[in-house]
Design a protein around this nucleic acid. Sequence first.
DNA 1: TTCCATGCAAACACTTTGCACCGTG
DNA 2: CACGGTGCAAAGTGTTTGCATGGAA
Lengths: 138, 138
Amino acid sequence: MSDDFADRIRSSGKRLTAQRELILRAVEALEHATPDEILTEVRKHSAAVNASTIYRNLEVLEELGLVRHAHLSDRAPTYHSVGEHEHFHIVCRDCHKVVSVDPDVVAPVARRLDDEFGFVADIGHLTVFGHCADCLPG
Amino acid sequence: MSDDFADRIRSSGKRLTAQRELILRAVEALEHATPDEILTEVRKHSAAVNASTIYRNLEVLEELGLVRHAHLSDRAPTYHSVGEHEHFHIVCRDCHKVVSVDPDVVAPVARRLDDEFGFVADIGHLTVFGHCADCLPG
DNA sequence: TTCCATGCAAACACTTTGCACCGTG
DNA sequence: CACGGTGCAAAGTGTTTGCATGGAA
């Protein structure tokens, strides 16, 4: 599995660095972490790493298909490893609770968008905002 | 219709100001405009208005249900007037084309999220990213 | 030994806030 | 004439970039 990672990096012409590995491990450990949270996590395990290195590598790791991001708030995006099975998110506007949902739930819509518009939806990036049962009036 | 606006504002205990009216008109005229674009539009019709006034009033107008916003890019949000019929957006990652889609298309999913999670989705805020027919490989 | 990657600091894009003055109700 | 709204400037948050140095291949 670390070998998968090493191969994936190298075969893209990029280099395997300590920082890259640390950042990927941090994303795997945290799930749904912002760049800042990832920075904090990385620093727990190793000496100082620069914030710009986090941003640059999250971009690289996403290009390589090793991590993904979603927008769960109006603030910073959150990253998660692709190892987890694909899912999308529903987020409550009031209590900010996040629930991961199986792609099957939106499959019919994806099909319809493809049929009607020739549009292929990126389900893994999808976030649906709304109100959860606990926060609904009444 | 301007009266609707005036009433709506006043009955909320807020005041009717020239800036508020200009900002609402700008949102109506532009559709899917960022705060900065709205600022530019407002300045075409009137003297200088401050950026902070734009932000403060977009928030107020949204609370009053007169405008809505969606996130169509990784940059600034875009605002549109509620006068338009409700819709959600699909956005192409490559060419950034935006298409407005009827809520009916996602109604089944909304129903399912409500049934399974007690979650009431905010369809008007929804943005689905993906790839349009023109930008698909093959 | 070649370039890609990193650290650092500055710049950047967008938004928010504190405070004095302005103007609606 | 009270209190909400505005302009202005400064600060805040999140992200990007230029450049010199460092290290993987």
